[in-house]
């Protein structure tokens, strides 16, 4: 009899503690989630860019989600240079065909994958971009070729709304 009683008591305490813990966890979540992007930030997730004035061999830098996006209208030499590279020579192998669906246009986040600096245009050993912070060299397809960065510059989701307008995001 007394043993049964003890067991019931233990169960009661366990249940109370467990229910209490669930509540505590539920209270913590809003305090964490409030730091995630809010509804107004999420609503600004896409931006449209007019690229009609961009001539071959030039780069337009626009701000998207608080980060620079490079829109490069590439020359034929740059495209050829990017496409003839041997996959074995790449640190992060990606085909240029996959990065730039329309070969003339390269759209990517202008953020070095090392520690987040903005690389400089038309610099570096591979005629692409060069990050001044820690010396990462990117080629004309924005792929990492030399230096500490581990990955190619990221290509965001984008589409041509019409011949002159790119929608990023």
């Amino acid at each position: 009899m007394s043993e049964k009683k003890t067991k019931r008591r233990d169960f009661l305490f366990t249940a109370t503690t467990a229910v209490g813990a669930v509540g505590a966890a539920a209270v913590v979540w809003p305090m964490i989630d409030q730091m995630n992007p809010d509804a107004s930030v999420k609503a600004l997730a896409s931006t449209e860019v007019d690229v009609s004035a961009l001539t071959p061999g030039n780069t337009l830098t626009v701000l998207w989600r608080g980060k620079p996006v490079f829109i490069r209208r590439r020359t034929q030499e740059e495209i050829d240079e990017a496409r003839k590279v041997n996959m074995e020579d790449l640190i992060h192998p990606e085909k240029d065909e996959d990065r730039a669906k329309n070969p003339e246009w390269l759209v990517m986040l202008g953020v070095c994958t090392h520690l987040g600096c903005v690389p400089l245009n038309d610099k570096g050993d591979y005629n692409g971009w060069f990050c001044p912070c820690h010396g990462s060299h990117y080629d004309t397809s924005g792929r990492i070729r030399k230096g500490p960065a581990p990955l190619n510059m990221e290509v965001p989701k984008y589409e041509f709304v019409n011949a002159n307008t790119i929608k990023i995001g």
Partner: peptide, 13 residues
């Protein structure tokens, strides 16, 4: 108002 409308659980906090 931004807290009340847009911030996640902002109204609750």
């Amino acid at each position: 108002e931004h807290i009340m409308r847009d911030v996640n659980y902002g109204w609750l906090i």
